[in-house]
Design a protein around this nucleic acid. Structure first.
Lengths: 120, 120
DNA sequence: TTAACTAATGCGACTAAGTCGCATTTAAGT
DNA sequence: ACTTAAATGCGACTTAGTCGCATTAGTTAA
């Protein structure tokens, strides 16, 4: 599925900003925040956040708050847990398919925090 | 170990604010943010955050950022995973002892997000 | 094509959690 | 009690993210 379809399938208007934003998100290998990519985008900050919120509603994007008080985003395909290092603050994707289950809950995402391999 | 010992053992000065803060934290059954308890405390906001940071350095307190952009705190005894509901935004402690391991990482905390039992 | 309608955008102002600087107070050793 | 350094309260500040509003641009139908 291409970017145009991703947008149209959700009955969203196809705009330059939305196309640019999805291209950007698809390019990443890990979650990013606004600061990380603002210099590579032409859209305004408000437009960025409004579109991110829209994409979240439509379940195209997943986000979470990191301990640096910034919101991080990634495309919601290939769902996987994340690891956030408490020492170097790097965020990594966990590819280990062994995602834990919790009785009584529907787990939609998992975040591990601790010391990453580089910080040991 | 009582509160006075907890503070003295870390070579911290025993102050009214610190005692009050630890009493407050020990009373909770789940993580709390400043807003949750400010009305029950006499100390200033700056003092609260400074002492929380100090307690974190001394590993008395654990904190994390929730999706409401607020920082949540709890006493760092009896470490356990947490569950944050994406729908009612409630934070719960997971008592299930089955905490997952990750090869190559030292996991210090785990946060699950999704739909809690009340929201199904 | 064009017209008309509505949603999306950019901009500047605003919000609020958390931090900082500094003058004052207080804990703790002598 | 006296001294000294650390802790506190207060107000000002920072900054990620949001809001209001005037303008622009997709989309649908004629």
């Amino acid at each position: 599925m291409n970017i145009e379809e991703m947008i149209k399938n959700k009955n969203l208007r196809l705009t330059v900003a939305r196309t640019e934003l999805l291209e950007m998100l698809l390019k990443q290998s890990k979650p990013i925040c606004y600061e990380d990519i603002k210099e590579y985008m032409t859209m305004d900050k408000a437009t960025f956040y409004r579109n991110i919120s829209r994409f979240e509603e439509e379940e195209i994007v997943h986000s979470f708050e990191a301990n640096d008080k910034k919101r991080y985003f990634e495309i919601k395909i290939d769902k996987h847990p994340h690891f956030m290092c408490n020492y170097c603050h790097k965020i990594e994707c966990i590819t280990d398919p062994h995602t834990p289950l919790l009785e009584g809950y529907i787990v939609e995402s998992v975040m591990f925090k601790g010391r990453c391999s580089a910080c040991q």
